[in-house]
Design a binder for these strands. Structure first.
Lengths: 237, 237
DNA sequence: CGGGCGCTTGATAGGCCTCAACGTAAGTGG
DNA sequence: CCACTTACGTTGAGGCCTATCAAGCGCCCG
């Protein structure tokens, strides 16, 4: 294995498949065209035609759908190294909106570069497909969470999942991580009301399990919490 | 456009991309090795290594995950023409179980054939990726459903979604379709209790909106129901 | 300094769950 | 051919989890 890349995207792909320096170079080339977006900016609108696809370099983003009744369901939380809007490369039309949570940097992916990378290096292609596959696994896991777990476990699992994902790109440890999400974001991601999220968070804090506050998530005892909530990160690998 | 294929898989792919006779032949070749499974048979177990991938030829199947607390979350309902366990071609390990609902016929896909088909005909490859993409869109939609809609609309949407999917492979019309699911299946798919599913179904039946009974789903007025529940099948295309 | 946003907390209500009992139909074995 | 079993569907009673409404606090920013 070569040196661990600092670039989160390369780092994430390396976790799936051990890439050579040359292959890492190709990955690097994929995101030349960096763009900057301010916090709150909507990169892609639901229903938009031919939206761009990006790799998130720094900052967080969320993808969501707005229901007819006006409520919002967050269907994905993206952290550095994640791909934004991969699906729309195929469909030519986005079925969800993507919004920057923080001020972010994103690298636009051109279909051409991607296809070329696929041709040249099947290993990189496979790694990207793995990333897409992991993406789906995360959605499926969330589906199970919302459908069959109570509010407390739902929140714990989401916080642990983010811990796992951030750690894999070097932005977190078992002790915790910086998290720009608001309680309302959690509510929209987990199918709950913001008020109830607040209550559960308070309970978790008072029970000395997790603290979600001031932009930081802090685990008192990560492993005990994982055992208590029966969290198993296997679905992501 | 050539003649509409009777084969549900070919028919489904044709809906995404208009395939030539030659390409349809290749699709046909993919599923030579037909297998038969009795109702209730579990084709793939959660955690199983190197599980097979199939195309469902006839009958229905469900994929699900069992939560630590013993409850079951159905994450996918497969009808003829759908692919079973595509993800595990990449991951080498299934993160969900797949079970036959009816006595089914399934064609095993060999990685080799698939790769070959991809090489020979990028159009077929694209169509299959579209199918995978549709699959994800369906999960995302269900996530929104469970998270942000009440029981009644949740059930209606699922029944309408199945109507749409079955119609696209020639197994249903706007009037209704044969449906082997039990009320418990609906409950496990929608994150509800079987008892509550029963009550909501009764209400829908008495309101003359949908009838779910004796293995058949019957819509009194499909379009009115779609409008009432604000169902929009766009996410599947 | 007003206003917006996020967080907090209390009171109240309701949707859905759980428990439990019973009906019905189909399959099994003697 | 009938007792027995099993699976699915139906219905009622009671209660919990979570939503909703409402009000107040602190902070940042124009």
């Amino acid at each position: 294995m070569s040196v661990v890349p600092t670039n989160p995207f390369a780092r994430k792909l390396s976790a799936f498949i051990d890439l050579s320096d040359e292959e890492l170079g190709i990955v690097e080339n994929i995101h030349q065209r960096r763009k900057h977006f301010f916090a709150g900016r909507v990169l892609v609108h639901e229903g938009q035609k031919d939206p761009a696809t990006y790799v998130l370099v720094s900052g967080w983003a969320i993808s969501y759908k707005v229901q007819p009744n006006g409520e919002r369901q967050i269907v994905g939380i993206q952290v550095p190294g994640d791909i934004l809007g991969l699906r729309s490369l195929l469909t030519k039309r986005s079925d969800q909106s993507i919004e920057a949570i923080l001020s972010i940097q994103a690298a636009e992916i051109e279909v051409f570069d991607l296809v070329e990378a696929f041709m040249k290096t099947p290993r990189v292609a496979t790694a990207i497909l793995c990333a897409a596959s992991q993406d789906k696994a995360i959605v499926v896991e969330r589906l199970g969470s919302i459908g069959r777990r109570d509010a407390e476990v739902r929140i714990i699992h989401l916080l642990l999942e983010l811990c796992y994902r951030l750690t894999s790109v070097g932005l977190g440890t078992k002790a915790g991580y910086a998290c720009p999400l608001t309680q309302s974001h959690l509510a929209d991601a987990l199918g709950m009301s913001p008020v109830h999220v607040n209550r559960v968070l308070r309970k978790l804090r008072e029970a000395r399990m997790v603290t979600f506050r001031d932009g930081f998530v802090t685990f008192t005892d990560h492993d005990r919490l994982a055992a208590y909530s029966r969290f198993d990160p296997d679905y992501m690998s």
